[in-house]
Every structure is written in structure tokens, then in C-alpha cells.
């Protein structure tokens, strides 16, 4: 056995090298550069000429910003709460079905998962067709059968937000479902049995036995889903394009528009950092929760 052929002798850096090199070149360096650009006056067409805080001032005094943040907040909060509740609900139902040996549970899981792998851009296009107010709009076509509608799913500002949230839930629920399904599988059934013997009702057993055991998973899942939702871009772009007006223009879309439509690189960099800061704050919360659980 030669020492040269002994990988552990080479130290960890040989092993970590490729991953760190790629992440450094394509994530870390551009991230630092984005920070640098935020302090300049660069545009997409012109290199920076001087260092300034103008971009920060421009973003903070931007009259559109409060609206964008409000839209981002509503979209993210509603998505996370509804998607987590639906994911937990489906996991509980499927778990119950499994225990009772009911057929069809695997098929249902597969169906929910199928929506998850639909590309985000296709998700937006599909729901745009479903919500459309034209004759081929699926939802209005169904409503018309029972004599209702047509509903302006995408052209009414408040409804457009609801539509964007529904489309996001359709795609994102699977992640929560798998998380809770796996967590439920890992619970000790003896506790359930003990509570049953003590005469606890199904609701009591859920609230007093199951839910407390899932607390950690729920917290961690909420943070992960929050980060995913903050980054949502393609489905909204294809569904509403951020409209009507700016009714569904979330921070990620606004950042994109600032850079690649408005060509304002420095202001876009500030917005991108704001987006990254929100995600990292959520990530820090996640790390804290995991530490708490240990």
C-alpha cells in the first residue's frame, strides 16, 4: 500500500476541491461582485465609473418598493401557510390510508409528486390556460356549466394574487407532503396506542400526541418552503407577468425587471442583495431550529 494511493493522506482539500472551486467561481465570486456593484453606478451597458451609495438611496426611496414588499409578503406568507397545511393534511390522510390498508394511496402520492416536477415555467403556462377568461379557460368553463362566472382570475388585481398563490400551492405542496409523510412514518405507534387505551379521542390524539412530535419538522419545513417561495420567479412570470399593474410583482421578478428590462445593474444588485438577505435570514432561523432540536 503506497502512501500516495491513500486518499485520506491527501487531506480533505483534494476531495473538496472540485466542488469548492465551482461554487467559488460561480457562486461566491459573483455574490461578492454583486455586493460591489451595489455600491457603484453600473448599468447593464456601462461599467461602473464611481463608488456611491446612490443605488441604495434609489431603492429605498423607490415609490414602488413598499408595494413590491407587500406583494412579496402576502404571496410568501399565504403560500407557506396554505401549502404546509395542505401538505400536512394530505400526509395525514395518506398515512391513515396506509395504516388501514386502503388501496390507491401510492397513486395519490404519485399524483401530488407529479405536479412537483412540472417545470415552473410550464406550471405558469398551464394555470394561465386554466384561469384564462377566453373560452378555453378551464375554471371559467366549469363555472359556466353551473351558470356562474366568468371570473376575472388574472385581470382583477386581488384575484390575480389568489391565482398566483393557487398555482404555487399546486406545485409546492408535494415537498411538504413528503416531509410530513416521512416524519409520520418515523413516529412511534406505541404512543398512539397508549393514548387510545387512555380513551383519548382522535382529535385529542392528533393535537396532543402527533402534533407536538411533528413540531420540529413543521418549523424546519416552513423555513425551507419560505426560501423556495421567495425565489419563485418563473411561474409568476408565465402566469401573470407580475400584473395586472404590479399586483403580483414579487421581489425576484422586480429585481429581474430592474436589471434586464431597466438595465439598471447597481439598483438590481441592491434588490438582489435584499432578496439574498431575506433568504439568509430564513436560513439562519432554520439552523437555529435544528440546533434547538438536537
Amino acid at each position: 500500500m503506497s502512501r500516495a494511493a491513500d486518499p485520506s493522506r491527501a487531506g480533505p482539500w483534494l476531495w473538496l476541491g472540485p466542488a469548492l472551486l465551482v461554487l467559488g467561481a460561480i457562486y461566491l465570486w459573483p455574490l461578492l461582485d454583486a455586493v460591489r456593484l451595489a455600491f457603484t453606478d453600473a448599468t447593464l451597458l456601462r461599467a461602473p465609473t464611481r463608488v456611491s451609495l446612490d443605488a441604495f438611496a434609489a431603492v429605498l426611496s423607490d415609490p414602488a418598493l413598499p408595494g413590491i414588499l407587500r406583494v412579496t409578503g402576502i404571496f410568501t406568507a399565504a403560500s407557506v401557510i396554505l401549502l404546509q397545511a395542505l401538505g400536512l393534511g394530505i400526509a395525514l390522510l395518506v398515512h391513515r390510508g396506509d395504516r388501514r390498508g386502503l388501496p390507491g394511496m401510492a397513486a395519490l402520492r404519485a399524483l401530488v409528486l407529479a405536479a412537483w416536477v412540472v417545470p415552473g415555467i410550464a406550471n405558469g403556462v398551464i394555470w394561465q390556460i386554466v384561469f384564462s377568461e377566453a373560452p378555453f379557460g378551464g375554471l371559467n368553463a366549469v363555472l359556466a356549466v353551473v351558470g356562474l362566472g366568468p371570473v376575472a382570475w388574472l385581470s382583477d388585481p386581488a384575484l390575480a394574487m389568489l391565482s398566483a398563490i393557487i398555482a404555487n400551492i399546486w406545485q409546492g405542496t408535494a415537498f411538504s407532503m413528503i416531509l410530513y409523510y416521512a416524519a409520520l412514518k418515523g413516529l412511534d405507534p406505541a404512543l398512539q396506542e397508549a393514548a387510545k387505551v387512555d380513551g383519548a379521542s382522535a382529535l385529542d390524539r392528533f393535537a396532543l400526541v402527533t402534533l407536538p412530535q411533528l413540531k420540529g419538522t413543521i418549523l424546519a419545513g416552513s423555513v425551507l418552503v419560505t426560501i423556495q417561495t421567495l425565489g419563485t420567479f418563473d411561474s409568476i412570470l408565465a402566469l401573470t407577468g407580475g400584473g395586472p399593474g404590479q399586483a403580483t410583482e414579487v421581489l425576484s421578478l422586480y429585481t429581474y425587471n430592474t436589471v434586464f428590462r431597466g438595465f439598471d445593474l447597481s439598483r438590481g444588485a441592491v434588490l438582489a442583495l435584499l432578496l439574498a438577505a431575506l433568504s439568509l435570514a430564513a436560513a439562519a432561523l432554520y439552523a437555529l431550529i435544528l440546533r434547538e432540536r438536537r
Binding site: 466542488a19 461554487l23 460561480i26 457562486y27 461566491l28 465570486w29 459573483p30 455574490l31 461582485d33 454583486a34 456593484l37 447593464l44 426560501i227 421567495l230 425565489g231 420567479f233 425576484s252 429585481t255 429581474y256 436589471v259 445593474l265 438590481g268 444588485a269 438582489a272 442583495l273 432578496l275 439574498a276 433568504s279 439568509l280 430564513a282 436560513a283
Partner: peptide, 19 residues
Amino acid sequence: ILAVQMISPLVILIPLYRY
């Protein structure tokens, strides 16, 4: 490395486009 995943590709795409 996990924290990297939390950063939206949008953030890095702005400088990457220039490079």
C-alpha cells in the same frame, strides 16, 4: 455549502451575465 443553496440564482446571474 448548504447556505449557498439559499441564494437565488437571480443574485449571481447579474454578475455572471457580465462575465
